[in-house]
Design a protein around this nucleic acid. Sequence first.
DNA 1: CCACTTGTTGTACGACTGTCCAACAAGGTT
DNA 2: AACCTTGTTGGACAGTCGTACAACAAGTGG
Lengths: 204, 204
Amino acid sequence: MSTAPAFRRSEPDARRLSLIEACARVLARAGIAGASVRTIAVEAGVSPGLVGHYFPGVDALIAATYGHTGARVDAALEAAVAAAGDDPRARLEAFVTASFTAPIADPELLATWIAFWSLVRARPEIAALHDEQYGGFRAQLEALLAAAGVARPELRPRAIELTALVDGLWLELCLSPQAFSADEAAAIARAALARIISPDRATG
Amino acid sequence: MSTAPAFRRSEPDARRLSLIEACARVLARAGIAGASVRTIAVEAGVSPGLVGHYFPGVDALIAATYGHTGARVDAALEAAVAAAGDDPRARLEAFVTASFTAPIADPELLATWIAFWSLVRARPEIAALHDEQYGGFRAQLEALLAAAGVARPELRPRAIELTALVDGLWLELCLSPQAFSADEAAAIARAALARIISPDRATG
DNA sequence: CCACTTGTTGTACGACTGTCCAACAAGGTT
DNA sequence: AACCTTGTTGGACAGTCGTACAACAAGTGG
């Protein structure tokens, strides 16, 4: 009678990814306060010591989780834009309203995101990740706005505006779901976009 | 030779306030992770045990700090509006741009605010405080928009929009100061406001 | 079947956490 | 001057934190 293996070995990359995903789940559930090495290890079904084997410290794991989560959000936005077809206006609306449907409109994702925000000031590497993430948002928005015929000097301020508006709506939608609905948030974003794209034919 | 007193007694309200202000400073400096009973006590120049004497637990102290900080922000906004005079448009602009000047445009205040956000999901009392705070923002904005002649059915969505826009701009301005300037943020908020108030005379 | 690499475990360590409470003393009253 | 209320201290307590590391074992090449 041979005993079952006490553990399975994994490909380093696969184990790394499973630790990152476990970290994301813990951040979503309990925020930064609950993201301890032991909690994350239990979530990943792994011994606490293994975290130190793949990451220099818990901060590095959290930074890696930011990168991974940011990439997932980027992918969701890109998919929404791609599904909208070729019309520049439709693509813009898709980008600007995607944050109010799954998988982005999720209080747990916001909890993860807030944890990252809370680290921006203290950890330079997280700050760099943040700058890159939001710079990417604005750059993508500038490209979509340009395709929709927005004048060159307007590109930058309008991209900043829409990024901030969507971020603010997403934040409040997830924090106070009863204050307004996801549909309301999407309608507000669309209305703001309409006012930006066609200033002389503004509509509610 | 008489020794100096080892400590001074304070009025309960004064000591309570000094603990709240120390808590706010710690949250600003180190975020929620650094807000321990001992750290706050040292910041207030007081023994650790005293915190438990004034608050049932550290959570209650943080909640009280949210209330106090929120009231300070409200006061700053109110002062900005009052200083703008009687013109409805000027009052709206003052409200909408006040977040990009001192004392609101402050990375340390944002750090405190992020700490509160991180507690909204877990602590119902913090969630209630948050709903009240942001409900107040929107109600004040609705009143200012109504005074500026915005149509009744537009009041709610435009108040939600402007609150979200200002919040998003403030967030990003404090997290990535090099991405855009406070003046730029104010100009963006003013332009959005202009598009809302006079949809047919939109300006950059 | 043995040897070797290395992913994995479990624990020990010092520092920190929140809560609690007996003892102390400051400041006012009698 | 003796007394009393109560703000305040400082440490005990059990628990958790991040890190480090020796020992173990899974899987592979021989």
